[in-house]
Simulated scan of single mutants.
Amino acid sequence: MVYAQILFPDFSLILLGYLVCRFTALNRSVWQPVEALVYYLLFPVLLFQSIVRSPIELGATSGLMAAGLLSGVSGIALAYGLPCLPGLRSRIEPRAHAGAAQVAFRFNSFIGLAMAQRLAGAPGLQLIAVLIGISVPLFNVAAVWPMARKGEHHFARELLQNPLILATTAGLTANLAGLHIPDILVPSVSRIGAAAIALGLMAAGAGLEFGSLRRDGVLTVSVLSIRHLLQPLMAWLAARLLGLDALQTTVLLIFSALPTSSSCYVLAARMGYNGPYVAGLVTLSTLLGPASLSLALGVLGPTLKL
């Protein structure tokens, strides 16, 4: 499996957004309203659809959910603790860290859904939807907290107004209640989801600025090391500890090795942080995706037989 081929469409859209914003009349003044549209409407609809589409069987997936939460909480703790580590305290600017910490533990759910379906078929797609459903509320709370704490934002208000958390909570509630999207609306919702993927990645590219990556090099290396090296290792340990089967272990490893979420940029920009720097981290994370997926699935992963 050449993982770069799977990630290429996402990276090409980021590159397209960068080129369009820099070299055409479609500059930042055009892309700022696009970011708002993606964040407040398109992404929430896509998340809701991804969670509702397949019933969640809590009993059969309890071990996978526990492993996903264990590895996820470990990633959050590492990201939060970076400024406290010896040698890093004086080299990481607090406000830059608040906006970038989310990159270490959030994930690109679009790529995750595609990878799980490609490698594990419908069973894999259902399992990764479960991981997305339980992780998005936790990870979004963890993403908002340092930015609300460092900025002039009220934490509870930010959570209650966060469209990604609201969409995920609604999706989980609907799934557990046995509700589903009416068939007549499925094509329209699917098209909204496709638009969310394309516009979200292009908006990240439009906000890209590589200069800030060099200025905060220590922070850049630190958060990307957690995302692409330590997260797969922690997921592998969690799978061994909880005795997951081959299918669940494969899905967990896919989940742990994904590039970071492109909505990291949108969230940072909407909360008044350095959006271009976070967009650069998103781009680098997308480039590192094939390496972390190769580590997770080629080195740590079991042989999967469907």
Rank of each mutant, 00 (worst) to 15 (best):
G178D: 06
L164I: 12
G193R: 05
A204S: 04
V186M: 15
A195H: 01
L176T: 09
N162P: 08
A167M: 04
I165L: 09
P163H: 10
S212H: 05
L208E: 09
L172M: 03
G207H: 07
L199T: 02
V189K: 02
E209P: 08
A206P: 03
L208D: 09
G193P: 07
A203K: 08
R191C: 04
G200I: 08
A203M: 02
S190D: 13
A203V: 07
L208M: 00
G207D: 10
G211Y: 09
L213V: 05
H180A: 12
P163Q: 11
A206G: 02
T169F: 15
L199C: 01
I181H: 02
L199Y: 04
L164P: 11
I197R: 04
A206N: 01
G211D: 01
I197N: 04
R214D: 07
T169W: 15
A174S: 06
L166V: 14
L201S: 07
N175P: 09
T168S: 13
R214H: 04
P182N: 03
H180I: 11
R191I: 13
P163D: 05
A174F: 11
L208G: 05
N175I: 06
S190I: 02
M202Y: 03
P187F: 05
N175W: 09
G211C: 00
F210G: 12
V189H: 07
L172A: 09
T168A: 12
G207P: 08
D183F: 15
T173R: 06
L164S: 13
A204R: 05
S212W: 02
L208H: 08
A196G: 06
P163E: 09
A204G: 08
A196T: 05
P187E: 01
P182R: 09
I165C: 05
A198Q: 01
A195K: 00
S212C: 10
N162Y: 15
A170V: 08
L172I: 09
P163I: 06
P187H: 00
N175M: 04
M202V: 00
V189S: 01
L185F: 11
T168H: 03
I184D: 13
A204E: 06
R214C: 10
T169I: 15
E209S: 11
L185V: 10
L164D: 13
A167Y: 08
D183N: 11
L185M: 07
L185K: 09
T168Q: 06
D183A: 14
Q161A: 15
A206Y: 02
L208I: 07
G178P: 05
G205M: 01
A204Y: 07
N162K: 13
L164R: 13
I181Q: 10
A170Q: 00
L176E: 01
G193T: 02
G205P: 00
V186Q: 15
I184A: 14
I184R: 11
P182H: 07
G211E: 01
N162W: 14
S190H: 09
H180V: 05
L176R: 06
V189N: 05
R191V: 10
E209C: 06
